[in-house]
């Protein structure tokens, strides 16, 4: 079983078992492929150069929409305009954090700088957003009910398995956050 992250004098320390690291890395890779699959293949190179994405459209997949949300509420036109200006770099930003997170997990035990811990936290968060969408978590009550599922011997169906993975990622994220927040309160 993994050990919770904790702030030490040398950095933010953590320890994951091999199977856990493999699982988290695989989840990062899944989200990377979600973000890259939908990127337009035949795009205007000049537009790409300046970071524009004239083909950007609101994602139909609700999980992808959660990763790449609307920037303006109740205004589809303005939202699309914002998407065309920013979505490409947002995707690249997220993919970079997910790749960095996967790379960081290759070391064990983990010893992270605050910057590395933030990249890992962003990657974990995007995985949690996707899992939450697949698990239909829409309210705080949904999240609470799911939180009760913690027995891996019960993992007989996909939903239960996803819930267990979600709770594991939540636990990792919370301990990472407590370590990062402690660092902000008391910088070395």
């Amino acid at each position: 079983m993994a050990k919770a992250f904790r702030k030490t004098r040398k950095g933010i320390a953590g320890e994951l078992e091999r199977a856990e690291r493999d699982l988290v890395r695989r989840l990062f890779e899944d989200v990377i492929s979600m973000l890259e699959r939908t990127a337009a293949a035949d795009e205007d190179p000049l537009a790409a150069l300046v970071g524009l994405d004239t083909n950007a459209a609101r994602p139909e997949d609700s999980a992808l929409l959660r990763l790449l949300p609307d920037g303006v509420k109740d205004d589809d036109g303005e939202s699309l305009e914002f998407r065309r200006l920013t979505e490409r770099s947002l995707r690249e930003d997220k993919v970079a954090a997910l790749r960095a997170g996967a790379l960081l997990l290759e070391q064990n035990p983990l010893l992270l700088t605050p910057e590395q811990a933030q990249l890992l936290a962003r990657a974990i968060n995007d995985v949690r957003l996707v899992l939450a969408d697949r698990l239909d978590i829409e309210t705080d009550e949904d999240a609470q009910a799911l939180h009760e599922i913690d027995d891996w011997s019960q993992a007989e169906d996909l939903q239960t398995y996803l819930a267990l993975v979600y709770n594991f990622m939540t636990w990792l994220q919370e301990s990472l956050m407590q370590s990062l927040l402690a660092g902000l309160r008391q910088p070395e």
């Binding site: 959660r66 949300p69 920037g71 303006v72 509420k73 947002l90 997220k94 962003r122």
Partner: peptide
Amino acid sequence: TQAMHSFGLWAT
């Protein structure tokens, strides 16, 4: 807004 999205927060 874009920065919040990169952190996974929903901002408008």
